[in-house]
């Protein structure tokens, strides 16, 4: 059974890699991708720590609600662990 996660709704300033349109949306982990240096720190030349990265799959219905073009089409995005809340 896939693991369900919610994208955190925080809105920090600066370089972030969680697209705004996915904040607060619930998806399932499609696969873990390993750990990578956090690009949100690398962008400022900081000594970035490694963060776990996941591919998370959302339904279009979850992302766009009633405006979804086709509710059961999907959208996958790469999201870092600090952006995800496990459900």
């Amino acid at each position: 059974m896939s693991e369900r996660v919610r994208v955190r709704t925080m809105a920090p300033p600066g370089h972030v890699r969680a697209p705004y349109y996915l904040r607060g949306k619930v998806g399932e982990i499609e696969r873990p991708l390993g750990a990578f240096k956090n690009p949100e720190q690398l962008a400022y030349g900081l000594d970035a720590e490694k963060k776990a990265l996941f591919r998370v799959r959302f339904t279009m219905a979850e992302v766009w609600g009633e405006r979804a073009e086709r509710p059961d089409d999907t959208l996958d995005a790469e999201l870092y662990e600090h952006w995800l809340e496990r459900l």
């Binding site: 690009p39 999907t74 959208l75 999201l79």
Partner: peptide, 12 residues
């Protein structure tokens, strides 16, 4: 046919 969109947001 199901459409799967992939948003290339990080290291992949």
């Amino acid at each position: 046919v199901t459409v799967r969109v992939h948003d290339s947001t990080a290291d992949m």
